[in-house]
Amino acid sequence: MKILLWSVGKDSDPYIKTGVDDFTRRITRYFPVEWNLIAPPKNAANLSQADLKKKEAESILGQLTKDDFLVALDEKAKQFSSEGLAQFIQTRANSGGKNLVFLIGGVYGLDESVLTRADHRWSLSALTLPHQLVRLVLTEQVYRACTILRNEKYHHP
């Protein structure tokens, strides 16, 4: 199984990018992993929230394959504990699927068409987090889940 981390938006600020790159590199010890930054539409500032989400959705849905297992990060969804995320990843790996896609939406979230396509919805936190910080938290939590699966010292329950 390959873990794909997708995010709508521009590249991270340097202080975020350093952490994201570090945790992404660590995840490669357990699973193939890659980032896909989905550029916002060129005329984003001129679009309504609904139209912007629809344009982003077209790009996202156009890049997904039918076999991708899509996890949409959605503030209204249920949360996982770190151990719960580890079990979720293990279950997906055991299912024999090719790609596990974690998707961070744009500044206004995800269009309903993407949420409908999602195989699972997950809330990272009840807090409102800066968009780029979500990338770092997601990457760290996926890494933590991997260490839990291997009973390594990183995670201290």
Rank of each mutant, 00 (worst) to 15 (best):
R135A: 04
L138T: 09
P130S: 09
T139P: 02
R135D: 06
L138W: 04
R135S: 04
L129T: 09
H131W: 15
T128G: 08
Q141G: 02
P130I: 06
R121W: 05
P130L: 05
S125W: 13
T128V: 11
S125F: 13
A118N: 03
V142D: 14
V137D: 06
L115T: 12
A118M: 02
S125L: 12
W122H: 03
T116G: 02
L133E: 05
S123I: 11
A126T: 10
S113L: 07
H131L: 15
Q141Y: 02
L138C: 05
E140L: 11
D119H: 13
E140G: 09
L127F: 14
L127M: 15
A126D: 10
H131D: 15
R117K: 14
R117S: 09
V137R: 04
S125K: 12
W122D: 00
S123P: 05
L124D: 01
A126N: 13
L127Y: 13
S113V: 08
A118F: 00
T139K: 03
R135C: 05
Q132G: 10
L138M: 07
E140N: 10
R135N: 05
H120R: 14
S123W: 12
S125C: 12
V142N: 14
L138H: 06
R135P: 04
L124V: 10
S123F: 11
L129H: 07
A118Y: 00
Q132E: 09
H131S: 15
D119Q: 08
L136Q: 07
T116I: 11
V134Y: 00
L136T: 04
S125N: 13
L138S: 06
T139H: 03
L115P: 04
L127R: 13
H120Q: 13
V134Q: 02
A118L: 01
T116Y: 05
A118R: 00
L129W: 02
L138D: 07
L136Y: 02
D119R: 05
L133P: 08
V134E: 03
V134T: 05
L124E: 01
A126R: 13
V137F: 09
H131P: 14
H120T: 08
L124H: 01
V142C: 14
T116E: 11
P130Q: 09
T128P: 08
